[in-house]
Nucleic acid binder design. Sequence first.
DNA 1: GGCTATATGTTAAAAATTGTTAAATTGAAG
DNA 2: CTTCAATTTAACAATTTTTAACATATAGCC
Lengths: 230, 230
Amino acid sequence: MKKILLVEDDPNLGLLLQDYLQLKGKFEVVLCKDGEEGLRAFTKQPFDLLILDVMMPRKDGFTLGKEIRKINEHVPIIFATAKGMIEDKTQAFNLGGDDYITKPFRIEELLLRINALLKRASSADKSEEEKQTNFKIGRYDFDYTTQMISAGDFHQKLSTKEAELLRLLCLRKNEVLTREEALLNIWHDDNYFNGRSMDVFLSKIRKYLKDDQSVEIINVHGRGYKLLIN
Amino acid sequence: MKKILLVEDDPNLGLLLQDYLQLKGKFEVVLCKDGEEGLRAFTKQPFDLLILDVMMPRKDGFTLGKEIRKINEHVPIIFATAKGMIEDKTQAFNLGGDDYITKPFRIEELLLRINALLKRASSADKSEEEKQTNFKIGRYDFDYTTQMISAGDFHQKLSTKEAELLRLLCLRKNEVLTREEALLNIWHDDNYFNGRSMDVFLSKIRKYLKDDQSVEIINVHGRGYKLLIN
DNA sequence: GGCTATATGTTAAAAATTGTTAAATTGAAG
DNA sequence: CTTCAATTTAACAATTTTTAACATATAGCC
């Protein structure tokens, strides 16, 4: 679960935002009521994203942002600022993958920006393997993004689950993909029924690939599956 | 190339301006000879800037400006007005980043103002990802502000909800836009009926985009949608 | 080997989600 | 009050996923 540090001096707004982000956004939200408290919290535990109110007593949001930048170069920051205060100040932060939002804002808009920033941050440290979307399976080409298997004139659209499962098999080509790993990755829950559901998809995928003898998905009893390509 | 709508009833002046702006300013200029024709043109295709003569038969420039503002909140407008007619009337538009110029004017002066307004409009956009209003979708251009899809001669006006949904898809291009996020952002309430309503709009948007095979909105079952552009 | 419990393969039915079209409703504009 | 467009609701179709049912295979054990 992603962790957010929210620094906002207005307790009404602060608690509202905290509640909403925890409920709808499924984030863990730490709320601080001023810049100094915020800085202390930041030095004590790691956060995935910061939301800083600009207008605050004692230590304003921009100052806090600058101090935090010295400690951590990359953590994404969203500045909440009143209209008109924007232009000059934010320039200092434009380079650093940050964002700002002008008060008053719709809370959905804030959520949109949070997700955009988190995505940008996380895609930066994704491994090459996880980014691969095109696979060669015998004489078939499998495009995970479009969820399609092709071989010459032949095209077969895959459902989402089919595509996700086949992708995992491809990533583990010639190795064992354990049932547990597949279930956790795709269904996010390893239980009997999801397991049976997966078996059904395995069966379907095998049908799609049956015309190429050199391709085979074999079962490793009690452990998982291996995609073999000769 | 920036597109300008010029509404001017005097054909001599109109044609002169059109020629000059096309040659010197390298704009594409559509000339209309009265307010009604101008409004029709505006609803049919997107423009980056409008130049409206205030003194016109049938529908004067201010009336036209007000009607256009209802359709599009942001497009910059330059009013061309005779001396003395200015003060009171223009106040209504001062908020909206508009400008006016008094007749007679030097044409270089007009060009100066056009460029100033265009720059302001575009730099306001560029600062944040979420403020982006122009998207390339395969061979289509989608302008969120004018709620219009264009491809060469083809222009399609979108309704508000259609435009908002397409915008979100564009912002999440090649990634999943979850149903929940879209519903919260556009309908501000995630419930069954709004979901079904969204499905209807998805269907409509797909129809608008169907002529470009390289563009596809695929469903990720149980999660949301992905806009794919090859 | 044969027996049994568990795991997997396959197919079909049920349930849930999504796609599409049309009708009903709403709301702004004349 | 009518007209028109946008949106929602309803109805039905198609697709995807889950559940159920039954068949087959594997491993451990006697």
